[in-house]
Write a protein that binds this DNA or RNA. Structure first.
Lengths: 146, 146
DNA sequence: GCAATTATTACCGAATCAGTAGGGATTACG
DNA sequence: CGTAATCCCTACTGATTCGGTAATAATTGC
């Protein structure tokens, strides 16, 4: 299991898009400035998010990114898995050495499975809309740039 | 958040100790052979487990390691945190850049906090005794070396 | 004393992380 | 039509971590 800066930055970017949902595309550069994310790094994250079906891109001048669905229909799980890969295959790497090399006969397996399930549950039941709500409250009471 | 081979190997080793709980110390070499863990690597893990208060060492010939308490009183959380460090400080690394550099004002923070709490809960409510039960069933129905 | 065992420290190759860089393709706008 | 803005793709890089090895010292049972 790994949660890296990709998830952190990527989720913030998706939240930002949710705040502008319905107002046309937002450029990666704009989000990078507003959320203080390294711009070239963010570009890469958007590529992954597009491939994961979370955002779609509008190319050319005045282009940018748009969420593919209503923020309430997008879960944190989709964002995290687009950026980091599947959670299942990454706890205790049950994939890599073809099932811990103890495949099936690993006494610890049940607890790793429960851990993955718990994480998936948290991420799957949290929508982007929910987090965007937090963001708008914070943006309102901040030295706002928006 | 990170779960690496340390946790996998370390948990298996602690489970092995639980299976022999009450019969004196078990050497790292013996466990390494039985559970197919690289022996020198396992030695390092035992150092961390000792510092975490999970095992105590008996030095010298016929020495080895013993659980500090009854397996039912030791949780997976203790083992994992001894080996990987605190779970809290490792989801989205809320420690490193002094709180995401957005400290307090991070719209994504609640979901990371929930994720950590969910993981902690799974690990804190699973005892070593529970997993040792699995192990003994598997050892019984295997081409046993024990 | 000797053999078995843990303790400590250092080291190493490979992979991953967190970005950076350079160029190309596409499109709005004047 | 030209140009600037924007996304797209590939490659590169320095730092860190991972997974593990090695050498050596300290401790203890026999």
């Amino acid at each position: 299991m790994r949660l890296t800066a990709k998830s952190e930055y990527g989720l913030l970017a998706v939240i930002d898009l949710a705040c502008s949902f319905g107002s046309g595309p937002v450029s990666a550069r704009e989000i990078a400035e507003r959320r203080e994310i390294p711009p070239r790094f963010l570009e890469q994250l958007f590529v992954a998010l597009r491939r994961g079906g979370v955002v779609s891109a509008v190319r050319g001048a005045r282009g940018g990114f748009v969420l593919t669905r209503d923020p309430a229909q997008i879960t944190v799980l989709e964002v995290v898995e687009s950026l980091e890969g599947s959670l299942e295959t990454s706890v205790c790497d049950s994939e890599r050495s073809s099932g811990c090399a103890r495949s099936g006969a690993c006494a610890a397996a049940p607890v790793w499975a429960k851990a993955t399930a718990a994480l998936r549950d948290v991420f799957a039941t949290t929508s982007i809309a929910e987090l965007a709500g937090n963001q708008q409250i914070m943006d309102a009471s901040a030295p706002g740039k928006r």
